[in-house]
Design a protein around this nucleic acid. Sequence first.
DNA 1: CTGTTAGCGCTTTCAG
DNA 2: CTGAAAGCGCTAACAG
Lengths: 342, 342
Amino acid sequence: MKTTIRDVANAAGVSPATVSRVLNAPELVGDETKIKVQQAIEELGFIPNAIARGLSVQKTNTIGLLVPGIADFFFNELYIGIEEVARNHGMKILLFDSQHSLHRAQEGFTFLKQHQVDGIIFTSRPITKDYDAILSRLEIPVVLVLTQSFGTFPLKSFRVDDVKACYDAVTYLISRGHQRIGMISGPTSDIVAGKPRLLGYKSALQQHQIPIKEDWIEYAGFRFEDGYHAMSRLLEKQKVNKLTAVFTAADEIALGAMRCLHDRGYKVPEDISVMGFDDLRLSHMSTPTLTTVAQPFKQIGELAISHLMKCMVDSSTSIDNGIHYVPHNIVERESVRMILPE
Amino acid sequence: MKTTIRDVANAAGVSPATVSRVLNAPELVGDETKIKVQQAIEELGFIPNAIARGLSVQKTNTIGLLVPGIADFFFNELYIGIEEVARNHGMKILLFDSQHSLHRAQEGFTFLKQHQVDGIIFTSRPITKDYDAILSRLEIPVVLVLTQSFGTFPLKSFRVDDVKACYDAVTYLISRGHQRIGMISGPTSDIVAGKPRLLGYKSALQQHQIPIKEDWIEYAGFRFEDGYHAMSRLLEKQKVNKLTAVFTAADEIALGAMRCLHDRGYKVPEDISVMGFDDLRLSHMSTPTLTTVAQPFKQIGELAISHLMKCMVDSSTSIDNGIHYVPHNIVERESVRMILPE
DNA sequence: CTGTTAGCGCTTTCAG
DNA sequence: CTGAAAGCGCTAACAG
């Protein structure tokens, strides 16, 4: 029923091998035969079976992308970067969503291995030693993105230096005249996006002789609702705290926080400034638009794929692990105001 | 290097066929051998090669998802619905982004065919006869989602009845006392999400004895910026139009429109009410939150997959084409106010 | 430049 | 209940 390379060969009066050649190495084929074959392909509407090819060549030209949640807004930004670069390299993406579950993530590796992907881009909160077992028997290059490894298995990772990025963000707020700066942090148990961002905040205050007060900090998840509630808690203490700005560990948190402020009758940025982290496309769609620190998702995607491609041709490259920090930058929009010295 | 079914067989002292059986039809294997084999699998950390299996069985348990743009917010909602249902059926998703290009979409079909997906879920603006050629030689069941076919190739589709949905939306506005209702429509050349939605708007006005004025309508793309500019054009005529509400063809448009209103000093919904279409997760994150008509993305995903699965077992099912409308519903939030009769 | 042959890793009759 | 053998569609030496 389905036309195979064999059918084409028969139709063109050549061997399957020749057809294969015009497909993969046309320069090795005589002009006349090439034309004959191409016509046959055309007529029969032949579409080569990539599965069979993959099996034969032991290479699928596919890279696996293992992410914690497709519903997470940052996924889009990341995917777009990766997809484009992959395509330019003639690679496809096979996606797997771990749904923020360790178990599902482990399944994900198995799944991608089953599908013989040539490399894997992995992102998730803490990569702990829970992954050591599966990673060590995987025999497929893996690169981390937006995270880093805390397990014993060596893994290259591309990410923003969150401590520095948050330090810079808070320093930016200080430069705009803010002194009473609160923070909505992720959980400190999250050693990837929680703790480091908090650390950056604290160290910026410290460097600028601003005392760190636990009362100025609230802990929350990374979603809109989490931000909303955390802000609400912060406001309960606002009489005494008198915060003029709040730095948040993620854009989505910031959006929730701004909404809460709005509901409580505070104006952003007039009464309180808010700053986010990520620079999602969303952040210029809010009112006010969000001042935030931008993660270069696209660049990270590029670096990850390039690295993977290197690993694929030269497996010794995979020894090149360690963290590669990519530069962040602060994008100013409307949610932060300047406080003029009196 | 990589462990194959053969290695396992050797280790367990059985034939590859037996290993295959414990993997795919354990009930056909004696208990003792089964245990032996399972141990061997465990010890060797054997992960079966899905590529090879697919080749052999002529079935990959994968369904292709061909979408116009992963960056589009609605993609997330759709994907989540589909992914979950697929997983429950033991199917994987292979994703392809056509980037709103006919050419790329055609490539997408070839790509998915190459990868031997068992079925394809396709969504894009108008499915015209441009697809007839590729679709007819595909020999893979295809189902449409959020769109419908205008080509000659018969294709089942699952979607909201946009005309009715928009009719209902505008009727809702009318029921809230609005009479001067404008619209930001998609391009009328878009016969999937442009024209029908406009039609629904017009017919609602008509049914309620409200004259249709072209001055009340602006045409735009579906993005935030498009919405912003269209609203801006609408406001230029506001002195004479005196609109009290604006219905938009998409949530993202609505968000842009609301931002524009904000910038021009109009309050939503006090001065002007705004209503969207889609019910993206975004729409409860804006200020004010967006009243909109919800597309049941998840349900659509479910229906599409179920249909595909039916086609796969019984190819005559694919004859069952035509449009299946899934019910929409209006979700009330903050962006529409009630106008009390004087 | 082209055909022959032997697999890639797994499944599936068909015997036993 | 288990093994042997053939084959899924394509590629890659190796001859010619």
